[in-house]
């Protein structure tokens, strides 16, 4: 564990907590893509199946459980409890266009052809693009509430910090995982446009609004 990895994990945790607080406090999931949240739940569940086969550390186990439980709780809030506030019409991204190619890619490019490893690889590829429905929703409505912007910033920062962690681990431990590094770089690149808007608008107290 190094400072980049810890900061990345905490940023990820912060993102999830921000999202749950936003939905709970405003009693609304307006502006949040249920499609992205479905993809994140699929990511965590398919990646953390190793909870039952491999013990890494208490920290690792607790974080995995938190990510799975919070993603399912978010889905419950969006599709059951605050269903009426969910923005169906704008959240029209077709997730099968992400799910199927990621699964096929995982079957083709992986470290080992075992069910758990294929699912882990699938989750890594899927996580890289899981935010696309959310970014698509923001682009369709042309704006995002400030707490939604903070959520996206924390979520994007997490993988960017992991990139630093992987650079550190390569030099410090000789450890590297090309699949995770490649997907993590794609994931971070997808947020760049949003990072720019966040820094130039939201941090200056303005609402995140896209030019018409």
């Amino acid at each position: 564990m190094n400072i980049f990895r810890l900061a990345g994990d905490l940023s990820h945790l912060l993102a999830i907590i921000l999202l749950l607080i936003k939905i709970w406090k405003t009693r609304s999931c307006a502006g949040i893509s249920g499609k992205s949240q479905i993809l994140f739940a699929v990511v965590y569940i398919s990646r953390y199946l190793d909870l039952v086969t491999t013990f890494v550390s208490v920290y690792n186990t607790v974080m995995k459980l938190v990510f799975i439980v919070s993603s399912v709780a978010t889905l419950y809030m969006m599709y059951v409890k605050f269903k009426a506030t969910y923005d169906h019409n704008h959240d029209s991204f077709r997730i099968e266009f992400l799910l199927v190619p990621c699964f096929v890619l995982a079957l083709l490019i992986h470290a080992a052809f075992t069910p758990l490893e294929i699912l882990w690889t699938f989750s890594i590829y899927l996580e890289a693009v899981a935010i696309l429905p959310q970014l698509f929703l923001v682009s369709k409505t042309g704006e995002a509430e400030s707490i939604t912007s903070h959520y996206l910033f924390a979520l994007g920062s997490y993988r960017a910090l992991y990139l630093l962690n992987w650079i550190y681990r390569y030099y410090a431990e000789g450890h590297y995982d090309l699949i995770a590094i490649f997907a993590g770089a794609i994931q971070t690149i997808l947020y760049c446009d949003f990072f720019y808007l966040y820094i130039t608008k939201v941090l200056k107290g303005k609402k995140l609004q896209l030019p018409a």
């Binding site: 994990d9 990510f67 962690n165």
Partner: peptide
């Protein structure tokens, strides 16, 4: 991947 330890990151 390390056969013994699996994936140690989140």
């Amino acid at each position: 991947i390390d056969e013994e330890e699996g994936h140690d990151e989140l």
